[in-house]
Design a protein around this nucleic acid. Sequence first.
DNA 1: AAGTTAACTGAACATTTGTTCAGATCAAAG
DNA 2: CTTTGATCTGAACAAATGTTCAGTTAACTT
Lengths: 195, 195
Amino acid sequence: MARTTGSHSDITGPRVLDAALRLFARHGYAAVSMRQIAKEVGVQAGALYNYTPDKQSLLFDLMKRHMQELLDTRSDHCRPGTALKQLEDFTRFHIRYHLDRSDEVFIAYMELRNLTPENFTVIEALRRRYENELETILQQGAVEGVFAITDSRIETMAVIAMLTGVTTWYRAEGRLSATEVEGIYWDMVRKAVSV
Amino acid sequence: MARTTGSHSDITGPRVLDAALRLFARHGYAAVSMRQIAKEVGVQAGALYNYTPDKQSLLFDLMKRHMQELLDTRSDHCRPGTALKQLEDFTRFHIRYHLDRSDEVFIAYMELRNLTPENFTVIEALRRRYENELETILQQGAVEGVFAITDSRIETMAVIAMLTGVTTWYRAEGRLSATEVEGIYWDMVRKAVSV
DNA sequence: AAGTTAACTGAACATTTGTTCAGATCAAAG
DNA sequence: CTTTGATCTGAACAAATGTTCAGTTAACTT
């Protein structure tokens, strides 16, 4: 029978994805070679193909896993409540989650054009589902009369762009804690969409 | 003496930059080859080197020209006034300008990591100058007592991220005109930073 | 008409690319 | 100890990369 313990595949496998994640985030998908990834893992390039059918799948798997986890974690944190309270939850969740996974976020927003058309469709659908959760909250707030919504799709995109932008400048060693940043952004979001 | 009229260099030169702009925006710097650019121009790859010392300069020149024009155009539009009025000017200018140059904006925000360190420093400085203009307005509004500013740098980055994000989803054929979008964003920005 | 030279071609260059695969390695199973 | 098979090496592949350059072309000047 096959080896079960002592196998390296359960160690090397994740390390391949980890290395790809870090390198793609740092230099971009197209600028990273399979040999660079292999070197980071401590293995020859050919060995990578025990863990991925090709380079494209590496990118796709990273993106899909990220979007999937984003949706799952968010749905765990989801509590019923007023639109205002739900918007606060969404805002704080989004910022915290994105600050914790800056590499994944960077890739998910920057490497969309390096996906094959079929893979792009899948990721785009997941992203759309996430955006729709915010849009629903805004629409509900409009019904409640607490939010001023002219075109819910635009306000959704505006808020998400503002929140996600935090990853481009935030540094953990900086002068502000994640919680302080969270508070400042929540103030701005609340005011921006309120009547 | 050298040929003056009938020369193609004044035609081909800009065409090289144009092709590079479009291709870099569509597929990313690292994913575009000099031969693809040459094909778009209708010339052999070697001919490109009459117009650029190397591929990196193509990217750098595009970015520098964009940031330079952004700063120049903005300084032309700059009028004295209250912080609120200046913020409105900045918001409307930023959206209009960015909608008109989506390719340039895309490159300027996505290809920073493909610049050499020295080139990155130059572009980063120009970008910083632009961001500072917004930060100055916010700080002035705080002094006037009309803006609620906790940390002017954060509010600056948040507003810029929100505004620039418009380029990711806006389509000229869409259901909203640029002017309508401008108005919606201005509403949100004003409320977000107001006391 | 002859000469000049900017503009371009087309081939060549050394590397690097993603991917494949025969064979070595070696821990576990029988 | 022998067999098994997952895991990995190391070399090989064709294609593509950025860049260079000797030579061709043709629009200009004189």
